[in-house]
Amino acid sequence: MTVEPKLYQVDTFAVGNRLLDPAQRSEQARADRSNAITSGHRACQGCGEVLGARYVLDAAMRATGGNMVAANATGCLEVFSTPYPETSWQLPWLHSLFGNAPAVASGMAAALRAQGRSDTRVVAQAGDGGTVDIGFGCLSGMFERNDDVLFVCYDNEGYMNTGVQRSGATPPAARTANTKALGPEPGNAFGQGKFVPLIAMAHEIPYVATATVADLRDLEAKVETAMGMSGARYLHVLVPCPLGWGSASEDTIKVARLARETGIFPVFEAERGRITAVSKIRRWQPVEEYLRIQRRYAHLFGEPRRDDIVARIQAQADHNIDRFGLLDDDPGYEQDQE
């Protein structure tokens, strides 16, 4: 009797699932995954960025059959992976500067094109500082030229390598070393936001996606989709930083999950400037659940509580939920676009 079971226990929520056909399991579940960044690196305990990088690069290695090269911006990811005389990388990898990874990658892609090696693919990666701030000009140029590069931003919402200062991706009210919880408006200012995925979409590049380290299968699928395309592609991965966010090292994935489940961080993908899919919130939670487990927001829950600020953050999450259609009963982005 052939059986089509309706349920796979952990389905695709967990990394692996012995009940699934091996071909359907995640790359991270494979004992022979490439471990593009291997043991011995100096990332902090529970680092979300190194996890994100391994998830992304292993998936990309699988998609390209290992035929790829990587450009890396200066930042935590670079510093903790390649202090002389040791490197943790297991793929061809180049670190040049903080603000130029997109352009370095463009040059790599151009060289490969000139050499007629279209089978070798280029991935560039940077933290949020190297992406949304100092590398932004180069990134936009790479997008505009539609160079054949997958650019991955590991967004930990600040300059963690230099001691946790704010970046253009630091959220409002978050405490950093230069936006301390002092004065009447503690933490980072409420600005207009600089959400590079939307800016990337404005370039109408072939593919833009957001993801978190809390949803491996989604992330891997997006990498696979991206590597199946050519031209400029952008992947923005939320990677909690236990050090900078003041979260427990074991909570890295939980924090990322809450970022998604509260609507603080919308997870979606877009092609040629149009949103094509949204990851719906599975178990909605108020933003306080997300904020409370991070010491960078501790000043909102001290004496006096700053419910006014929590409400403003909640409003931002609600805005995301509305804008991207993150809840199940929400007609969502499609209607907005028609």
Binding site: S39, G40, S81, T82, P85, E86, T87, S88, W89, L91
Partner: peptide, 8 residues
Amino acid sequence: LDVGSSKA
């Protein structure tokens, strides 16, 4: 550097 050397 040689790849994977951080295992040291």
